[in-house]
């Protein structure tokens, strides 16, 4: 596979490490009321869509950016990739 790195252009997937669902970015506040339930959902309730899926890839053998890559799980088509740490975050 080729990952379209937003800064470096297409790079072979061998340079990357895969993590999973991009929802992992939205970590609950551990000090908030009901944190236990929130973390349960955060850790264990994942969608497994047949179709576009936002997922996390790490450019481990490149610039060490974490990316959110939108990939169609039925075709492996990549619909977009952005830095996890971008404007507005």
């Amino acid at each position: 596979m080729l990952i379209p790195h937003p800064l470096l252009g297409p790079r072979d997937a061998q340079e990357f490490t895969y993590l999973g669902d991009a929802r992992l970015i939205d970590r609950p506040d551990g000090m908030a009321e009901g944190a236990g339930a929130a973390f349960h959902d955060y850790l264990y309730l994942r969608d497994n869509p047949a179709g576009p899926h936002r997922e996390l890839w790490y450019h481990e053998h490149g610039d060490r950016s974490w990316l959110v890559v939108t990939r169609d799980t039925t075709t492996h088509e990549i619909l977009g990739a952005e830095l996890v740490k971008g404007p507005g975050r």
Binding site: W66, V84, K85
Partner: peptide, 17 residues
């Protein structure tokens, strides 16, 4: 050594930007 660095980068970039 590698995985901890990766996780710390994830925390830096994604969790606590």
């Amino acid at each position: 050594a590698g995985p901890v660095f990766r996780n710390m980068e994830f925390a830096r970039q994604a969790l606590f930007p």
